[in-house]
Structure formats: structure tokens, C-alpha cells
Design a protein around this nucleic acid. Structure first.
Lengths: 141, 141
DNA sequence: CAGCATCCAGCTTGATACTG
DNA sequence: CAGTATCAAGCTGGATGCTG
């Protein structure tokens, strides 16, 4: 609905940027594209979703996001931390303990993400039926 | 590994299968996971976003979603069509003309997606600053 | 125009092993 | 526990060529 354009950034550094596009993710080299991919990527989305329920430690997260390898989780967390969506808090104890939490920005993003995830899950029966129809119509051929 | 093994493992403990989780995307083999990936995938998200502005033809879509190859677009559209998010209408004219449109379900999903995309774009300056901070703190090391 | 088939480079991912 | 390093395999996606 209020898909109104974003607030005009205005002071966007040097040079005038006459780009009247509503969303420029559509443009190939827009930085928002990479962020969007971190957010919506297979593990990014699930990680943000898991973190939305509360702060979690590395291995808790690993168990929560079923199927993620430790390498992928580590990588995902770095990307999200770099984008300012996740905050990493390491305690210098022994054994080490590190908590991952959403930043305010991360929480906003996660909320929208969860709305999307929820929508998809709510309608899965519809999706499943559509798949059956589709497969039937082609498998027959 | 375990090819088959059919019966419900039941390792989950208490919950009966009749108790649907709120969000089971977190589970590895949940069908919603694949749909979510079609929706949030690099090209799926942009395709749904483009289609939200109105019905488009194959090559229009290709131009709109900057960087997508025809193979990927074709593949993406098939997945979205199979999931019941996109409707494909082919007109038997010459030259052929095919219109892609969002289904009602697709529109719902697209709206949430656009809310997410909009959120990310609105806050890109924040993301960019976070990246700078992060890189500075590590590049130094 | 709309799209499928094939080839293949290379990025992504998962195992495995090791560190603090 | 919380990661990093390395390597092989496989899937992703681009280029090209062809059909209806």
C-alpha cells in the first residue's frame, strides 16, 4: 500500500544522483541488492528469523537453523553483522561465550521478513495444491 | 545417508504430528523452505517485485530485472508459476505474446516482499555506515 | 517474440581438521 | 564453546545456438 518512495536521502555524498526509481534494487550494481541478498539468502533469512525470538549463542543458532553448517552460519553472521543487522557480543570467559542479537535495524528487517515467512507458511496448502496442478498438467505430457 | 527410513522418527518427543509449528521453515525438510527460497531468491524477489507493478511480458521482465539471463528468468518464472504465485497467459498469436501476472497469492507475497525491500533501501545509508565501521575495525587488524 | 537444450567456468557449500 | 582453514564436489548461472 504505502509503497511510497523512500524518503529522499538528499545528502548522498558527491555528485547529483538523478534516480527517480522507486526501488533501485532492480539496478544491477545497487548496494541494496547485496544487502537484500544477505537478508533473504537461504541462511540469512532463517538466522534473522531465529534471532528475532531473542538473543542466541552460536551453537544454539546452529541447532535452531536446521541444516546450516558451522561454516555457513559463521559466514552468514559475519555478513549480517557487517550490514549492521546483527550485534555480536563476545564475553572473554572460558569457555568462550558469544551472544548474537538483532540490532534495532535488524529487528525492523526481521519483522518484515517474518511477515513474509508467515504469509508463505499460512498459504502453503494453496501453494502445494498449485504445485500438484502444475505437475499434473506437465507430467502427463 | 538414510535413504528412506520411512516411519516418523518420533524423536521430537511430545508433539504429535497433528500439531503444526508456527514456523517450521526452520526444519530442514519443510516444503515452505523451498517456496521461501523461490520467493526470496535473487531473481524470484526481483521478479515478483517487478510484476507487482503490473503484468509484463517475458522480455519486458528481462529488461526490468537488470542482469537476469533469459535462462534464469525462465527458470524463475517456472518455479513461481508452479508455486501458484505467477500466472502465465500465452496468446497464440504470431509473433507469440505471453503475459505474466501475479495471482492473488502472489500479490500478497509480493506486497510483503516489497515492504522488506523498501525497508532495506530506506535504511541503506545506515547499512553502509555499518559496513564502513566493520571494515575499518578489521582492515586495520 | 518466447523459450528450450547444452556446455562449462566458478562460486557456493559441506566435510573434515585444527586453534584459542 | 566458538570459531578458522582447506579442499573437493556440485549446483548456479552465463553464453551460445536452435525452435516455434
Amino acid at each position: 500500500m504505502e509503497t511510497t518512495a523512500r524518503a529522499v536521502p538528499g545528502t548522498e555524498g558527491a555528485g547529483s544522483d538523478a534516480d527517480p526509481l522507486l526501488f533501485d534494487v532492480f539496478a544491477r550494481h545497487c548496494p541494496s541488492r547485496s544487502t537484500l541478498e544477505h537478508v533473504t539468502g537461504r541462511w540469512g533469512a532463517l538466522t534473522l528469523g531465529a534471532l528475532h525470538e531473542g538473543s542466541l549463542r552460536f551453537n544454539q543458532l546452529r541447532r535452531r537453523v536446521d541444516g546450516v553448517s558451522e561454516k555457513m552460519l559463521s559466514q552468514t553472521l559475519h555478513a549480517l553483522e557487517r550490514d549492521g543487522l546483527v550485534h555480536r557480543e563476545a564475553q572473554p570467559t572460558n569457555p568462550p561465550r558469544v551472544d548474537y542479537t538483532l540490532t534495532p535495524l535488524g529487528r525492523e528487517v526481521a519483522e518484515r521478513l517474518l511477515s513474509l515467512i508467515g504469509c508463505v507458511e499460512d498459504r502453503m496448502d494453496e501453494v502445494l495444491r498449485a504445485r500438484e496442478r502444475y505437475d499434473e498438467a506437465r507430467g502427463a505430457r
